[in-house]
Simulated assay, not measured.
Amino acid sequence: MSTTTQITEHQSFSAPTETRSFENGVAEILDIGGAEIGRLTLQPGWHWAEHVKPIAGTDLCEAPHFQYHVSGTLHVKMADGSEFDLGPGDVSSLPEGHDAWVVGDEPVVVVDWYGASAYAKP
């Protein structure tokens, strides 16, 4: 019988590996298990086209996302014109080519398993 040593990792968003701040929002990134996981906190009034587009330098968000929505309501508009809201308890898989903004007075918090590595980077 062969035995394999497995490495256990534990991190917390209270001490992220990297923090990227932008107007009305912050992306906290953990580098764990060979992947980057992000927690995005977006304040009321946040709109990708206004607050992240100047950083990204693209017409739409080109970072695909696989996210769990913790709180708040996020309105998403895809390049094809389709639109929908995402809220607490939703899981979303968004391909590149979208815009998004916070709806209402509650901050949006999402945990992003895919796309965080490129989010809010030039």
Rank of each mutant, 00 (worst) to 15 (best):
G89I: 01
G72D: 02
S2R: 10
A120C: 12
L30R: 03
L40V: 08
L74P: 04
L30D: 04
G97Y: 06
A27G: 13
T3L: 08
V110L: 15
Y114A: 12
L30T: 04
V76F: 11
G89K: 03
T8Y: 09
V76T: 14
G57D: 02
E18K: 09
S117C: 03
V76K: 06
H10N: 15
G89P: 03
G87Q: 05
D90V: 02
D90K: 01
P88D: 01
I7W: 01
V103Y: 02
G72H: 00
P54L: 00
V111S: 05
R20N: 10
H69I: 15
T17R: 08
I32Y: 04
A49Y: 01
D90L: 00
P95R: 11
G72V: 00
V103T: 10
D85H: 06
G72C: 02
S117H: 08
Q6W: 09
G57E: 02
I32H: 02
R39A: 12
L94K: 07
W48M: 05
G25W: 02
V91G: 01
G34C: 06
D31E: 14
H47D: 14
Q6E: 10
W48K: 04
E83P: 03
C61D: 06
D112V: 10
A79P: 06
F13Q: 11
Q6Y: 15
G45C: 08
E36F: 03
G97Q: 08
G81P: 00
A56D: 09
L60T: 03
T8C: 13
K53T: 03
T19L: 15
W101R: 11
D31P: 00
A35V: 11
V103H: 06
V26N: 11
T19R: 15
T17C: 04
T41G: 10
I32C: 05
H75P: 07
A118E: 13
S71P: 07
E62N: 10
E96V: 08
L42I: 07
H65F: 05
T3I: 11
V108R: 00
I7R: 15
F22T: 12
P16Q: 11
E62I: 14
W46P: 11
V102S: 06
G72E: 00
V110H: 03
D105A: 06
P122W: 03
H98S: 07
A56S: 10
V70M: 10
E50H: 11
H65G: 13
L86F: 07
I29S: 04
D85R: 01
S2D: 08
D80C: 03
H75A: 12
W48Q: 06
I29K: 09
V102Q: 01
T17A: 14
V70R: 08
P107F: 07
E28K: 15
G33F: 00
A120P: 08
S21T: 15
S117F: 01
Y68N: 05
G25K: 09
Y119F: 13
P122Y: 04
R39I: 10
P88Q: 03
W46K: 12
H47E: 13
D99T: 14
T5S: 05
G115M: 08
Q43D: 11
S14P: 05
D112N: 15
G38Q: 08
G72Q: 01
D105V: 00
W46V: 13
A100W: 04
G33Y: 03
P64N: 07
K77S: 14
T41I: 14
S12C: 07
H47N: 12
M1D: 14
F13N: 09
E96L: 10
E36I: 06
V26I: 15
A116Y: 02
A35T: 13
T73F: 07
V110C: 12
H69D: 07
A35W: 09
P95A: 08
